[in-house]
């Protein structure tokens, strides 16, 4: 019983990232409004960024910044900074995707006068 509880509580970041991914996917699939879908897409992307940051986290670790020291430092005292550096790029990518998607949404609105998917599909059938 304890081990199951440990399994759930000890990895709460991973559970959260899965939950956020599912919220994002749900919004992308079931929402009718295109702006909502775009928000869902961005939530999906931030979930993956959260996953990466959780990889680098260590219990009892601190910010990976070194003061000017001459003595050797213990690696386990610092969280792993490599995933952070990767995620800086991923954040920029996710914002650019967000921007491109919103620009496309504005183009669609100018063309069809609406952002509801069912109305656009009806408009395209004619």
């Amino acid at each position: 019983m304890d081990s199951i509880l440990e399994f759930i509580v000890g990895r709460y970041n991973y559970w959260l990232y899965i939950l956020l991914m599912m919220i994002g996917l749900y919004a992308m699939i079931s929402k009718n409004n295109l702006t909502k879908k775009i928000v869902g897409m961005n939530i999906f992307q931030t979930a993956i960024i959260l996953f990466y940051i959780s990889i680098g986290f260590k219990k009892g670790g601190t910010i990976p910044i070194l003061e000017h020291t001459s003595h050797a430092v213990e690696v386990s005292h610092f969280v792993n900074p490599l995933p952070h550096v990767l995620m800086l790029t991923a954040i920029v990518v996710s914002v650019s995707t967000f921007g491109v998607a919103l620009a496309l949404a504005i183009m669609i609105y100018r063309e069809h006068g609406t952002l509801e998917e069912d109305e656009i599909l009806k408009c395209l059938e004619q």
Partner: peptide
């Protein structure tokens, strides 16, 4: 979680620029 640089970027780019775009 100790990822200060990512937090900075997210605060400026994610919370700032995204909201402006939106």
């Amino acid at each position: 979680m100790g990822a200060v640089d990512v937090a900075f970027t997210e605060a400026s780019v994610g919370a700032g620029v995204s909201t402006v775009f939106f």
